[in-house]
Design a protein around this nucleic acid. Structure first.
Lengths: 236, 236
DNA sequence: AAGAAAAGTTTGGCATGCCTTATCTTGGGT
DNA sequence: ACCCAAGATAAGGCATGCCAAACTTTTCTT
């Protein structure tokens, strides 16, 4: 109450971001182990840090029961995510930085970006709502449009939707897909599913592709595209 | 010899930058006290850090005799300075960030900028050689054109030159000057000097101004403009 | 329900990194 | 020859976070 909320560090940012992501994935408190795995730390380290985050008012922590972000924690997470996604988009768009490097660069800069620079970048980009990987960008007021998505793999033959992103923004996959003209925003129809976890035959924006292995699991699709134009379209 | 030279931290950057600046000002080893004052630290702190910098091979330190940058140290300093000045220019130019905030922002980002992003920014700006304050920007190979400059105050009546920068890039001063149309690159003639440290009457690009107080001390002028165009001109 | 396994917490330690104060040391000037 | 300011050193503090190991709680198994 007395202290100013200038409590930030790369580590704190990363914890909140990780908690946010895990918490959003399946709406439950986040376990210490899940965090430890994600952050590649020991569970002991995480436990210690969680106490600190609790004292900072960023999370609520029921011992042995997992953590949840408080509204402050959520705000912090969304701010960092906003930074990250704006930066990715900016670097790719304004500076033509190649896909695969954008993520790493943003990972560093997100912790350092001032509110002011954030705003300038957002303005320059026309206040975009999705980043180059198709992930939604929280607004300046930290509202985020989390449309529910399903993995491409989970679609049945005949179902269709809009390809919105590759989970975790894996640059390898994105490059592979981009090389075949499969980009976030594209309209996907599932034409055929081979049995026993085999590949899918899909059509993306008219052209057919066979996608197997990890790919259909990683690709996220939003059902009912409703023909609404995405905020920004991407060029190949 | 065995260790990689990935030795960087904001503090180390700042020490090297400060040493570089002080060393360049008057070509002598830099005293501990001068550094302490500049960095706003106690001399004890500086002494301790100097040992470390010595071990890192960034400086040579003759005890009680001051320090000099080694070639590695100089390289580091120039790299940070390059980052700083590129960032200032980029923020001002590409993002229209106002003068007075550019410096603070660059001060943070300079420590974090990757070589790759540096290069992209430099390319975007057309590999500029001077920053918005008129300071030279080291090249990617870390060569810097340090033209000798004199303070405007030191000029005699009748001498003239090119206004190249405001020392320390004081944003207040720069704003004041810019408001009067006095910008780096302008041609300055000293028309009259009032005695006893009084103000100077100068003409800048044709229009006359009376400049007194700290201003003439802070303004740096390059003699013999030789009519060479500055690499980039600035708009008001 | 007992006991084992899994999950989570605590404790103590450690490594950086950099700063401060207090106390010596030194070199240069008179 | 002496003194003093500049500088060096020593000892310590503080903030961040990490790990390993021991301990506790929950959950799973039978």
């Amino acid at each position: 109450m007395a202290t100013k909320e200038s409590t930030r560090s790369a580590a704190i940012d990363d914890y909140c971001k990780a908690i946010y992501t895990l918490q959003t994935r399946d709406d439950e408190p986040v376990s210490t182990n899940a965090l430890a795995e994600r952050l590649e730390l020991t569970s002991g380290s995480v436990s210690g840090m969680l106490r600190k985050l609790g004292e900072l008012g960023l999370i609520t922590h029921e011992p042995y029961r997992g953590v949840r972000l408080t509204s402050d924690g959520r705000r912090l997470a969304l701010e960092v995510i906003r930074h990250h996604r704006l930066l990715e988009l900016y670097l790719a768009e304004a500076l033509q930085m190649p896909w695969d490097r954008v993520h790493a660069e943003a990972e560093v800069l997100e912790h350092v970006l001032s509110d002011e620079l954030e705003e300038l970048i957002a303005a320059k980009l026309g206040h975009p709502t999705i980043d180059p990987h198709g992930d939604p960008i929280p607004t300046a007021e930290l509202e985020i449009a989390e449309h529910p998505t399903r993995s491409l793999e989970s679609l049945q033959v005949g179902e269709s939707g809009r390809f919105v992103r590759v989970s975790d923004a894996d640059p390898e996959m994105l490059r592979y897909l981009a090389g075949r003209g499969i980009l976030p925003g594209g309209h996907v129809d599932v034409i055929e599913r081979q049995p026993f976890g085999g590949p899918l035959l899909v059509s993306v924006d008219g052209s057919e592709h066979t996608l197997g292995g990890e790919l259909p699991r990683a690709m996220r699709v939003e059902l009912e595209p409703a023909a609404a134009e995405p905020t920004r379209e991407r060029s190949a």
